[in-house]
Computed example of a mutant assay.
Amino acid sequence: MRHPWNASWLLGSLFAASAAVLVTLAHAGPRSTGAEGWSERELAVLATLSLQRLPPAPVDPSNAVERRPAAVELGRRLFSDARFSANGKVSCASCHDPQRQFQDGLPVSRGVGTGARRAMPIVGAGHSPWLFWDGRKDSLWSQALGPLEDAVEHGGNRTRYAQLVAAHYRAPYEAVFGTMPPLDGLPPDAGPHGAVAEQAAWAAMSERQRAAVSRVFANIGKAIAAYEKSLQHEPTRLDRYVDAVVAGRTADAGVLQPDELRGLRLFIGKGQCVSCHNGPLFSDRQFHNTGVPPRDPARPDRGRADATAKVRADEFNCLGAFSDAAPAQCQELRFMVEDDPALLGAFKTPGLRGVAQRAPYMHAGQLATL
């Protein structure tokens, strides 16, 4: 499924080239002028921006169903179902609105309560080994589960969600994941998180019951991830321009305005924005502390520094019991950097396709405009 949004209208949002390409180009031979005044070095960098250069998202070995059409369709339905929330009003689409590039346009997201960070767009998220601004999840399906149990996002619990699937999605669920476990006799509201009563009810369940409910819960995330991974960017004006000049053609008149071209030259040149915002998705998918002021100076967000312990302890990570991967396939998690001081206050480089239409900016909406 391709999402039909328009191109960004500000070339200050456009970035280029991977660090490896830049290093290679730095040692390249003499510059010569190419199409429309771009040097050979610049054209080589521009080429890396094209959406045509984006490979398919890597297969996630921890989610065996992610490419099954039936899983994509089930995930599409679950994504927009507001019954999967404590108040029956919040769905994944509430914060990841398809009409807003799968985000909500708010400084910090609002579910059943108010969060502390912005909703990130999800198109292209399957190319990243880490999810959320701080990377506290290591797969799309694990990421999808986090908000469902979060007190200020969906605010629900596992037995409630499992029973919703049994009541409303049994046939499509079983077509993808096999027979649902029996859920008779379970408390209506129980889970390892949430209210004290919910946690107590969860503790009173047998280990077998908890494992069965958690398996259904994990499969909810895997179906949603299959849908999210099916979403793709549409080519933009930038792609039209880049594809033309890299091929040695003159771009269509007016496809980029003069100020946009000046911005593009800055971003791949003097501005060096390409150092972090590179490739077709304009992100190195790494974590950096760029000195953005915290939203709450009294309680600064520690970002990636606190996330590594969370992802390591997550029962739904690549090495967990609900993953479909073999341990040897979980290289990112096994060799995750955890003790680097540079992780303090570091957040993931956001992808910037269509960014001019996604104000406000930064991880907590600290900046109102580009």
Rank of each mutant, 00 (worst) to 15 (best):
R2H: 14
S8V: 09
W9H: 15
L11P: 01
G12D: 14
G12I: 00
G12T: 14
A16R: 00
A19S: 10
A19N: 13
T24L: 08
L25G: 10
T33D: 10
A35Q: 08
S39W: 12
L43N: 14
A44P: 09
V45E: 13
L49P: 00
P55M: 05
P56T: 07
P58M: 01
P61I: 11
A64T: 09
A64E: 13
E66V: 07
R68T: 12
A71N: 13
E73W: 05
G75F: 04
A82C: 04
R83W: 02
A86L: 12
K89G: 09
V90I: 14
Q99L: 12
R100C: 01
L106W: 05
L106H: 12
P107V: 08
V108F: 02
R110T: 15
V112S: 00
V112G: 00
T114M: 08
T114K: 12
A116S: 14
R117Q: 14
P121T: 14
G124E: 12
S128T: 01
P129D: 09
W130Y: 11
W133P: 02
G135N: 08
R136G: 04
R136C: 03
S139V: 00
W141G: 10
A144G: 06
L148T: 05
L148S: 01
H154T: 08
H154I: 06
N157C: 08
R158G: 02
Y161S: 07
Q163H: 10
Q163N: 14
G178K: 10
T179V: 12
M180S: 08
M180W: 11
D184T: 13
D184R: 05
G185F: 10
L186H: 14
P188K: 06
G191K: 00
A195N: 12
A197S: 15
W202A: 03
M205D: 13
E207V: 03
R215H: 14
V216P: 04
G221P: 13
K222Y: 15
A223I: 05
A226C: 04
E228G: 01
L231T: 14
R237D: 10
R240M: 05
V245S: 05
A247Y: 10
R249A: 08
A253Y: 06
G254Y: 15
L256C: 00
Q257R: 11
P258R: 03
E260T: 01
E260H: 01
L261K: 06
R262D: 14
L264W: 03
L264R: 03
L264Y: 01
G269L: 00
G269K: 03
G269P: 05
Q272F: 04
Q272S: 04
S275C: 03
H277V: 01
N278W: 07
F282S: 10
F287P: 00
R299F: 06
D301E: 09
R304E: 02
A305Q: 13
A307I: 07
T308Q: 03
A313S: 05
N317S: 02
A321F: 07
A326V: 08
P327N: 13
E338G: 04
D340T: 04
L343W: 05
F347G: 02
G354M: 02
V355N: 15
A356W: 08
R358M: 14
H363F: 15
G365N: 09
Q366H: 12
L367R: 15
L367A: 08
L370I: 07
